[in-house]
Design a protein around this nucleic acid. Structure first.
Lengths: 326, 326
DNA sequence: TCAAAAGTGTTATCCTTACACCCATGT
DNA sequence: ACATGGGTGTAAGGATAACACTTTTGA
């Protein structure tokens, strides 16, 4: 019996619906117990080397088979190969196999498609309740996370600095991109149910009941899917700022307010209305259609469309290398 | 005989030496012919699931075994799984296996360490001669690449637009980060020896002799290593602008001019001296040491050190989300 | 004394941020 | 009329990019 490697593909499929950023989740069927898993997971499937020329094609295939959903924008996130992060052994031929999973981020404008059974759109604040700062700093941070992390750090300056930076404690500023860093910190501190579960599995024990605080810190997912989701959210939040990805979750026609609410839902922070408009309009990424949307509650808003053509002129932006003329 | 999957790890190890950005390459030993491969490759090795808890640990292990080199800064680049990009089948137990390779980027300040045999530092302009714009636009672009791409496009507007954008043709501006895009375009256009080789292999033919132009377009590498290298260079150039990665290839003490030459070597563009100094000094990432380096040829320059501590205060930069106060 | 490289000062311009305000619709 | 959200004007402050210039060394 040899220990070989199996490649799994996982998809973080993001949409925005009613001002909430949502991710496609499902209750996977557990072959061992022949029941639905109590925990949600991301769509995932094995990569069959005979069947597919590329990962991306394989991903599109199994996602549509598993969820009834056709992917649009897709990008590779990261390849996860750590032993002991509850990546269960798969049975392959004669032996057991280590599962390596290649995570993908996918974006779609249509969160309302008909879906396969046991497949639901979940707001990601279910999994990361501390990530939504649109209504200000969440109480959970100072009331739940801060004391628990201080206990964990117990004076260690490195741990204190990490906690301070990640969760904007004691006057540090919030960086909405560090989603993974925050999740990993909670995992390390034993505040995610997954860490107790993984530790128990490594020692052959049964996983413990989650502590009360742990339960308040977002729902866990199967395997390392919450980690993959955190990677996807972080990547998406970062990319918002230098690539026009927000439009990938918008319908063909939208108002600037709707675009703003979408960006806010993803970034998890409130944006300045007037300046957001100007930033967007100045980029030439949108084109006014002259037509109005009357269902806004106040003055009707102009409808815009995304100018995909504009991608041609895109410079990189980002922190400057002061180049030299000519 | 089953077709299974083998994971390989590849490392793009970057240093800067005498004002040139260099990458660690080797001539791999070909088990079939029992000779050294005529083409250079990146350090790579199989990932043994029994032996290693994480990819990164495995990478550090086999790189030091293969090249005699200890890695410092390491980050995952991308996982390459396409069939037909000359990823040769590996023999595993009873069957053939598809090779999936996880590429890593590593940075090191010491390009002069003693190395294993057949391991050399190569300037990357050997592989991408069109990427060095420090002395202005390379002639190769207008004299070699442009006509060949125009022939390939033969009027197709999509192809023309891609070529124009990637290589800054006809007044388009150069974006130094699009290294992979440029290499992939040349590959698709049949201008990289690798594409003819891969096509021949797919059909069971012998690879053809590279055409004269193709030979001028940079040295090919084994397998898809030039593609991995392009991914690494692109990632590094992008990251320069928003993370203090340049310091990872600098010695402990350096002058601001040396730092500038390093950044120029990586980014492949000339920078404005006075403004570069100011940008660097304003970030608080460096600290003047009060001591001087006399070997500059002119007036002695102050030595600086990298303030790793400063990482704490890092804001995100990048294209702004106009946040709201408080 | 001159070449070469280090380092400073200053300015026009653009972008970001913030504040104040007006406009069009439904109830 | 007034609440609600859409949309515009403008000005302060800071960063960028360009210019011109002084300083310190070695040959």
């Amino acid at each position: 019996m040899t220990l070989s490697v199996v490649i799994g593909l996982s998809a973080v499929i993001i949409a925005v619906r009613d001002g909430e950023a949502v991710v496609l989740t499902l209750r996977p069927h557990d072959a061992l117990t022949d029941r639905l898993s109590p925990l949600p997971g991301l769509p995932f499937g094995p990569f069959a080397p005979e069947g597919h020329r590329t990962f991306e094609l394989a991903l599109r295939d199994f996602v549509s088979a598993q969820t009834g959903f056709e992917l649009g924008y897709v990008e590779q996130l990261y390849t996860f190969g750590d032993k002991g992060r509850d990546a269960p052994r798969a049975e392959v031929g004669a032996g057991a196999a280590r599962v390596v999973s290649v995570g993908y981020l996918a974006l779609t404008p249509s969160a309302t498609e008909s879906l396969a059974r046991d497949t639901v759109w979940s707001s990601w604040s279910r999994f990361f309740p501390w990530e939504d700062w649109r209504k200000g700093r969440p109480d959970l941070i100072d009331e739940g996370i801060r004391p628990a992390l201080l206990t964990w750090a117990s004076g260690d300056p490195t741990r204190l600095a990490r906690a301070r930076l990640a969760f904007a404690l004691d006057g540090a500023s919030w960086n909405e991109e560090r989603v993974l860093e925050r999740y990993e910190l909670l995992y390390e501190a034993g505040l995610a149910p997954e860490s107790a579960r993984d530790a128990a599995r490594a020692e052959g024990r049964d996983p413990p009941e989650p502590a009360a605080l742990s339960a308040a810190l977002g729902e866990p997912m199967i395997s390392d899917h919450r980690r993959i989701l955190a990677t996807g959210l972080g990547r998406l939040r970062g990319k918002l700022k230098y690539r026009p990805v927000a439009f990938e979750v918008m319908p063909a026609e939208f108002t600037l307010s709707a675009l703003q609410r979408t960006v806010e839902a993803i970034a998890g922070i409130p944006l300045h209305k007037q300046n957001f408009r100007r930033v967007v309009e100045r980029t030439d990424l949108v084109q006014g259609l002259g037509r109005m949307d009357a269902d806004t509650g106040g003055r009707p808003a102009e409808l815009f469309r995304y100018r995909r053509e504009a991608l041609t002129a895109r410079p990189a932006s980002g922190l400057s290398l002061p180049g030299i003329r000519d």
